[in-house]
C-alpha cells in the first residue's frame, strides 16, 4: 500500500474571497503582518499498490479528472 497526499491550491490570479476573510479574521485577533492568505485543500489517500510509478500516474489522472478543477486550481502530489 502506498500513502499519498494531494494538495490543491488556487492558481495565481484567481481571487480567493475566503482567504481574504481569513486574513481579516487573523488581523482582528491581533496577528499583524499576515498577508496573502490562500485557502486550499488537502487529500490523504491510500492506494492498494506497491508500484510507485503507477500510483503517481493514477493520482495525476485523479487530480485532472476530479480532485482539482484545473481552470482555477493547481495540484501537487507527494508519496509517503
Amino acid at each position: 500500500m502506498i500513502k499519498a497526499r494531494v494538495t490543491v491550491t488556487l492558481k495565481n490570479g484567481v481571487l480567493d474571497p475566503q482567504g481574504k476573510a481569513i486574513e481579516g479574521a487573523l488581523g482582528s485577533l491581533g496577528f499583524e503582518g499576515v498577508g496573502a492568505i490562500r485557502q486550499g485543500k488537502v487529500f490523504d489517500l491510500e492506494l492498494a499498490t506497491a508500484d510507485r510509478a503507477k500510483a503517481e500516474a493514477d493520482l495525476k489522472a485523479m487530480c485532472d479528472k476530479l480532485l482539482a478543477n484545473t481552470v482555477i486550481e493547481n495540484y501537487t502530489i507527494a508519496l509517503a
Partner: peptide, 17 residues
C-alpha cells in the same frame, strides 16, 4: 456544466462570502 467541461470558466464563492 462548467465542471463537466461543456462550458468555459468556473464559478467561485461569492465575493461577499
Amino acid at each position: 456544466l462548467l465542471e463537466a467541461g461543456l462550458l468555459p470558466g468556473a464559478l467561485m464563492r461569492n465575493s461577499s462570502l
